[in-house]
Design a binder for these strands. Structure first.
Lengths: 141, 141
DNA sequence: TTTGTTGCAAAGGGTTTGCAGGAGA
DNA sequence: TCTCCTGCAAACCCTTTGCAACAAA
């Protein structure tokens, strides 16, 4: 993938007070095009070494700060990033077959939060839910 | 904390085919005594440098393999370990005030699993839920 | 021109591995 | 005694930082 400016990305970036550099636009585009969480290494390979690792880290952090992406830490302790298309509270549902990820708007836990903490006297304020399963395609294999 | 053998630990360890070394017993005891997730560094300090870091890592891994402990990776990408007292499916509820952790046997998500994946056609097979809140003591401060 | 951004290199820090010496059973 | 375990040191690897050169606006 070549470094080029996507007009849409550039507008969003500038609206957020960031300069629309080719690297930054390209990283955002890679994230946009992928439906699975990407590591920094994934992105670097996708960009064909045309962007340095520190640059990728720094830009991804900016995107997370803007609420455009979310960072996940897996069991392998490697950071991965997913583009967030909804702004509110949501969860990610990841296919264990192909790695594809979709956002789930409905929160399965919210209704039970009070009940969950009650036995221990806890007041639950926050939660993190990761869902894993098989997407339609992978179920047929 | 001194390195000493706890008779109970020793029995469990030998039953699992492991030698009951002082280090191993001590690590298990530290984990047993704590009600919050501990990093390797936490354990090393608790043991007063009487056990090497690689030894702690190796033993914790054995405990996880035995189902005696669970490893968690936080946003800081540091591994933490908690003693598991129940063998089945459960979740952890952690206090954001003092760090104390309790196990929650009831699973808030199980009932909704099918419904969660339905919109995307996913079949949900596995999930991870982390709950954060305030324990009774910390609510009063 | 000004300010933010990139790239390189190096540092940082948690985790893992290899191997020789040591201790449990 | 035999096997497993420990400790040390070094290797690994992902991530972050410092700084000078560069480019967007």
């Amino acid at each position: 993938m070549r470094l080029k400016k996507n007009p849409d990305s550039a507008i969003s970036l500038r609206a957020a007070g960031m300069k629309a550099t080719p690297q930054r636009c390209a990283i955002l585009h890679v994230l946009d095009s992928s439906d699975r969480p990407l590591s920094v290494e994934d992105i670097r390979q996708e960009l064909g070494d045309e962007s340095g690792v520190p640059t990728i880290y720094r830009n991804l952090q900016s995107f997370v700060d803007q609420g455009w992406a979310e960072s996940l830490v897996g069991v392998d302790q490697v950071m991965r990033f997913v583009r967030c298309h909804s702004t509110g509270h949501h969860h990610h549902l990841q296919c264990e077959g192909c790695g594809r990820t979709v956002e789930v708007q409905t929160c399965a836990v919210e209704a039970s939060l009070a009940a969950l903490g009650q036995p221990a006297g806890f007041r639950v304020t926050r939660h993190q839910l990761a869902l894993y399963g098989l997407c339609p395609e992978c179920q047929h294999q």
